[in-house]
Amino acid sequence: MKGPLSSLKILDFSTLLPGPFASLLLGDMGAEVLRIESPTRMDLLRVMPPHDGGASTAHAYLNRNKRSLALDLKRPEALEVVKQLLGDYDIVLEQFRPGVMERLGLGYEALKAINPRLIYVSITGYGQTGPYKDRAGHDINYLALSGVAAQTGRRDTGPLPLGVQVADIAGGSFHAVMGLLAAVIQRQQTGEGQYIDISMTDCAFSLHAMGGAGYLACGEEPQMESQTLNGGSFYDYYRSRDGRWLSVGSLEPQFMQQLCSALGRPELAARGLSRKPEDQAALKRELQIEFELRDFAEWCELFAGLDACVEPMLGLAEAIEHPQFKARELVVEVPREGLPAQRQIACPIKFSSGLPAPQHVGAPLGAHSEEVLHGLGYSTEQIATLKAAKVIA
């Protein structure tokens, strides 16, 4: 089976999380992804624990279905290989700091001269322009600068380091895929490629879909626990008697009525309509008292039969076994050479025509170097020479 993106061929120069997650999605949907990796400066994701079968599980997941060409980009022979690949691979994804690819002779203008249809996507922390363009950063920094962290947490304890990388993935990865596919559609119409500048901080900033709109139009700046959806209302988490947590999102009156009736406090439902902070704070205290009267399992059993927007907070191990995620087939078995298949998170995008089955986990460094070069017409002797000179691995 071929996926919907089977016509796309992508050279992926990225490492760590944002770029590889983007090309993971593209590969899952059928695109052919060739990773260009340094043989001397290893992608740190390859050594990140935990390990399974001697390989990093994060690397095995984020780089499934991709081939690996180990190429020392500082060597002119490597530059020649990339130029030849551009005859077939007309999309480039890279994640270096601004100017690095240009210094290597692999910037957009240089490669566009070889293939005018080239689509070139750069993912960086702060973008290709502005005073921060050369500054180092990580997900927590992008969320802090973009104003996201300032409204995520508790007033008395401060912002929370999130368990998933929002700026990296929701910011960098998803927007890179959207921009890339939009450019593909335009290229189909015009025949021309283009350059796409993705800043993870910009994209995190754009996630202020509600609070940002309110501030820019009305001057109402969101603070921690000040909005309906960030802890400023009863829309929150509540602890059970045995120390587990349940999420309450019963915003609409019909859901609020079911919630309060299930708690044995139907008279509380009317309070959910008030927008006064003091009324919401009082309601939250009442709800917490009620939730602490029963254990987690009791609440789960009770709310399983109600449509009240109340769900248990699950750990990852519990979520994997939940019947909803099992029905959605969100765990897939991915083949490994010489080892049993590895369980991984499946592509969450469902197509009526289906998607091709995963081919393999993330490949060893340079696993496909000879195969790729043979495909370009290099002889066995030429490949041996490049290996001896450590241009490839």
Rank of each mutant, 00 (worst) to 15 (best):
L17F: 11
L26D: 03
L26A: 01
L26F: 00
M29I: 09
I36P: 00
M48C: 08
D52L: 15
A55S: 09
L62V: 06
A70W: 03
R75A: 13
P76I: 10
E80A: 15
G87E: 13
Q95T: 13
G99P: 02
G99A: 08
G107S: 04
G125K: 03
G125N: 07
T129Y: 09
G130M: 09
R135V: 10
V148M: 14
Q151D: 01
R154W: 13
T157C: 06
P161L: 15
P161A: 15
V166C: 06
H175Q: 13
H175I: 11
V177Y: 02
A182I: 07
G191R: 01
G191F: 01
E192L: 13
S199C: 11
D202E: 14
S206Q: 13
L207V: 08
A209W: 10
G212W: 06
A217I: 13
Q223N: 08
Q223V: 12
M224L: 14
E225H: 04
G231M: 05
G232Y: 03
S247Y: 04
S250I: 06
Q254W: 10
Q254S: 14
Q258D: 09
C260V: 07
S261G: 10
R271G: 01
L273Y: 08
L273D: 07
R275D: 09
A282V: 01
L283Y: 00
A297R: 09
E301S: 14
L306G: 04
P312H: 06
P323R: 13
F325W: 12
K326W: 09
A327V: 12
V331K: 11
G338H: 06
S352A: 15
S352T: 15
S353F: 05
L355G: 05
P356R: 08
H360G: 02
H374R: 15
G375P: 04
T385W: 08
K387I: 10
K390T: 13
V391E: 01
